[in-house]
């Protein structure tokens, strides 16, 4: 299973990025092969609007089955969920702990967006 995690850096000990739309990068982690690849998302950092939509598009097109991030806005949530990508909201933790939580099944699937859009 491939999971996309919003991150600040590839360092597994570094904390994840809590933002989805304006996350700097995504780590695409394969739970079977335990390998990861990096998706750059910096073009969305400065978008005036629609960052969530474009980030969701990036994630969906990697073929990820699930997303782990801090918060998602309504548009990103809609696009991800309608494309069959599961969304998990995590507390701010090091990336390796977030992955461990996911594998242990302790992360709860989000059933709605938890923040409004508009650049927050």
């Amino acid at each position: 299973m491939k999971i996309a995690i919003s991150i600040n850096s590839l360092d597994m000990d570094d904390k994840m990025d809590m933002r989805f739309g304006r996350a700097k990068k995504f780590m695409i982690y394969d739970t079977e092969t335990k390998t990861n690849e990096l998706i750059d998302n910096t073009q969305n950092l400065n978008a005036a609007q629609g960052a969530g939509i474009q980030s969701a598009q990036n994630v969906i097109n990697t073929g990820a089955d699930a997303v782990i991030t801090g918060h998602t806005g309504p548009k990103a949530y809609k696009l991800l969920s309608e494309s069959g990508v599961k969304i998990y909201h995590s507390e701010e933790k090091p990336v390796k702990d977030v992955i461990a939580d996911f594998i242990a099944g302790t992360l709860k699937e989000a059933d709605s967006a938890d923040v409004e859009g508009h650049w927050v």
Partner: peptide
């Protein structure tokens, strides 16, 4: 999606999805 400067359109699974709010 390419021409839209306002990020309203995403292309996922070979179809366009439009967010008219933006």
């Amino acid at each position: 999606a390419e021409i839209c400067e306002f990020n309203c359109i995403a292309i996922v699974k070979k179809r366009a999805v439009i967010f008219p709010d933006l």
